[in-house]
Amino acid sequence: MSAILFEKRGQQAWITLNRPQHKNIMNGEMFVQLADAWQEVRDDSAIRVAVVTAAGDRDFCCGGDLGELIPLWTGARQPQNELEQRLLDDPMIPDKIMLKGEPLYKPIIAAINGRALGGGTELLQATDIRIAADHAQFGLPEPRAGVVPGAGSMVRLARQLPYAHAMKILLGGEPVSAAEALAMGLVSEVVPLEQLQARAEHYAENVCRQAPLALQAIKRTAIETHTQSWADAYSFEMEQAGAVMMSKDAREGPRAFKEKRAPEFRGE
């Protein structure tokens, strides 16, 4: 059984973490397949939005499978298949799965079907719109094991949330509920589990109706200017706006409005 399910639904890419019997914990196979999935989303111009979710109704992802990964990385055991060998050969794969090394400017929606602990909470910080089932939980328990959440959380979380909320998750060690995560701003919306799929589809379809170059410029600007000075940030924003205004899509939008029809954006 593949650790990652990758499905193209028209202009949408659906990525499903697929180890429900193991709490969707990330092993070597999942690392490599998730890195490949993100690369396909990045490279395929037909894909306008990605949705990441998980199999089952209890766990989104409860971290990394340290029992498999640490012996592999330390040489205590040999790779058992081609994917584990790729993980050893490419030390950047852990960064790639968290979109640390090379940002992905296409919109990413997370449909969080259960507990997101450790690496699960870290992965969510690489996404844009986050819909959680009402029984979901979030947490970074790494310090309890004597390690740190080093897949992006020590940098990202305090930039994405108010400082005190971020530090409660980073230092507290205890999971927070979906309702608490919503109040903090960690997630965008909380719904009953049976509505999760439909809400993710709603957001994905809405993204696909909009101009892809415009959305990517918006996300790129939000990410790249986060720590810049106001002057540098506004300059970058104008560069992005100018590039979009020169696109065919920028002409198609007003034309469609004038002709009272839905625009046909092509990402050009």
Rank of each mutant, 00 (worst) to 15 (best):
G118R: 03
I93T: 12
G253V: 06
Y105Q: 10
W14Y: 09
R9M: 05
D36K: 08
V187A: 01
T127N: 05
E122S: 13
A132G: 04
P263Y: 04
G185W: 07
D43K: 10
R86A: 14
I223Y: 05
S235Y: 03
E259K: 14
G64W: 06
H22N: 13
K260T: 08
Q85Y: 11
D36T: 06
V176R: 04
E174N: 11
N113T: 05
L140N: 05
S229K: 09
G63Q: 04
A178S: 15
P103F: 03
D128P: 01
R255T: 09
F257H: 14
Q33W: 09
V244Y: 15
I109M: 01
G253M: 12
G10M: 05
P149G: 09
P91W: 06
K96E: 13
V49T: 07
G114Q: 02
R266G: 14
F6A: 07
E40F: 01
A54N: 12
V41M: 03
A178I: 10
A262T: 15
K106Y: 11
E239L: 11
D43E: 15
Y203D: 01
P71N: 14
R266N: 15
R58Q: 15
L140Y: 05
M98H: 14
L69V: 14
R115T: 07
G267D: 08
T225D: 10
G56C: 02
S188V: 12
A166S: 04
I108V: 15
I4L: 08
R209F: 03
E7L: 07
D65V: 00
E194P: 01
A35L: 12
I15S: 06
T74G: 08
M167R: 14
Q160L: 15
G67R: 15
W230N: 12
G56N: 10
G253P: 03
I223G: 00
I109Q: 00
G150N: 12
A262Q: 14
W73C: 02
I108Y: 02
A50D: 02
F6I: 03
L104E: 13
V187I: 14
K168I: 00
A222H: 13
R266M: 15
E259G: 00
L104G: 10
E194W: 08
V207D: 06
P107D: 07
E122T: 00
R209I: 05
R77D: 06
Q197A: 09
D65T: 03
A198I: 06
T221M: 01
V52H: 02
V187F: 09
V190K: 04
T221L: 02
V49E: 01
E259P: 00
I47K: 04
R42E: 03
H202Q: 12
A54D: 11
A126N: 06
D232H: 07
P91H: 08
K168W: 02
M246H: 11
L34N: 07
I112V: 15
P175R: 11
H226S: 07
D44A: 08
